[in-house]
Amino acid sequence: MKNGMIKRVGVIGGGQLAWMMADAAAKLGVELVVQTPAATDPAVAIAAGKILAPVDDTAATAQLATQCDVITFENEFVDLKALSSLESQGICFRPSTHALFPLLDKYHQRCYLKDLGLPTPKFSSFPTPHTPHPTPHTPLVLKTRRHGYDGQGTFILKNQAELQATVERLQTVPLLLEEFVPFERELAAIAARSVTGEIAIYPIVETQQEKQVCRRVFAPATVSQEVVEQAEAIVRTLLDRLQVVGVFGIELFLTPEGKVLVNEIAPRVHNSGHFTLDACETSQFEQHLRAVCGLPLGSPAMHTSAAVMVNLLGYEHSTSDYQTKRQQLAAIPQAQVHWYGKTESRPGRKLGHVTVLLDEPGKKQHDSAIAIAQTVEAIWYG
């Protein structure tokens, strides 16, 4: 680091989230160095340097630190205690390990939110199947406390038999038990906090999931100002108390009574913020690099009235690049196709996404967004 200027950012993880930082890095005059297990991971192709090692390989992270000015995260499957030791030796992580400690274990995350007075579903830790436990009401949600994402490690259970079978299958894996929230809609907030404490919040969005995997994002969400204010208050409390530096994604439930609950927190750029690449003055990826590099945050405002983002998920085992379908998607008016360059497709794998910008007002806008999402999925899934 020369004259206090950050020129090289290390990224732990080399998937599509790191890959989508490339244009922002070039714009800001920053180089990326990634720590990722495989040379075929998307971000390897755009990085100025790479260390091929698992993201929880702390020796590799120490090596990464010698090649960059600051280290950030594309995913959270890391050995946080070991990274904390590196941080105590002077290695700069943004967000800090202190900010991440309450979040990576989902039970600890729930407890932290409760301590802050932030609204969450009712929850408890869950014993192993070899110890007695109370019989909870169903339906309910069972989650693995670490390493779950895109629906993996999340189980919506309808009765006691499903609960018992799932617990027995997971054996001694630490678990979190939650009430099932009969939400009206799922929402998400993408927000950044700078080294000086400045906070920028993007428009609150609606997300639609299938099998606990995000399929569609509608920006902005068609909700009341009161709901927006509830969501933004949660964001500000969380980011300020954690002293976050960087972008966080916060998944939310909106109940039929109009109350906003925190579902989960992702301490990084997030799938629900991909629309910002095409629809906002500053993308979440540029915003994240601005924060970790100590630069002023950019405007999170949308430069279009609305946008819809649709994930392109794998639906078969294949090595196809789906060129014909991608051309059809690109022909949709005001559509941008982002293809992650992954070499293999498998059911549920995120291969790319499509964002379509909209200009219609009010109810017509929402109807158009739904119709466009259906068109994209008809082309993609056939």
Rank of each mutant, 00 (worst) to 15 (best):
L28Y: 09
G90C: 00
T207Y: 00
R193W: 04
F248R: 03
A18T: 03
A335C: 10
T255H: 01
E168V: 11
T40F: 07
Q171E: 13
I12D: 04
G294H: 07
P139G: 09
F155R: 02
D278C: 00
R169D: 10
E210A: 13
P132N: 11
I51T: 07
T72V: 04
G153N: 11
Q109G: 05
S96G: 00
M21H: 11
S305T: 15
I46V: 15
P132S: 13
P267N: 02
P333C: 07
T207N: 15
Q171V: 05
K106M: 05
R169P: 00
H303R: 13
A371G: 04
L252N: 04
H366C: 07
R326F: 02
I201C: 04
A331V: 08
K50N: 14
E186I: 02
P300E: 08
V356G: 02
T172Q: 14
T355H: 11
H303F: 12
T61R: 08
H98S: 14
M5S: 09
Q208K: 13
L103V: 05
A307E: 05
A161S: 15
D359H: 13
F285E: 07
L254Y: 04
V55R: 12
G13Q: 04
V245L: 00
S85E: 13
D278Y: 00
P127T: 10
I12A: 05
G14Q: 05
R268I: 05
L17M: 12
Q212H: 15
L17E: 01
L52I: 12
G352S: 07
H98Q: 14
D150N: 07
A369W: 01
G258W: 03
D69T: 06
P119V: 08
P127W: 08
T355M: 10
Q287Y: 03
E74M: 03
F248M: 15
L142I: 11
V195P: 00
V269Q: 09
P296G: 09
M5G: 01
P174Q: 12
S224V: 05
W339A: 10
Q328L: 14
E76I: 09
L118A: 10
L252E: 02
I199H: 06
A200T: 12
Q212K: 11
S320F: 02
A279F: 03
Q212S: 14
D57H: 11
I370D: 03
L64K: 02
A38F: 13
G90Q: 02
Y322F: 15
I234N: 03
G13I: 04
L100P: 01
P127M: 09
W380I: 07
E286G: 13
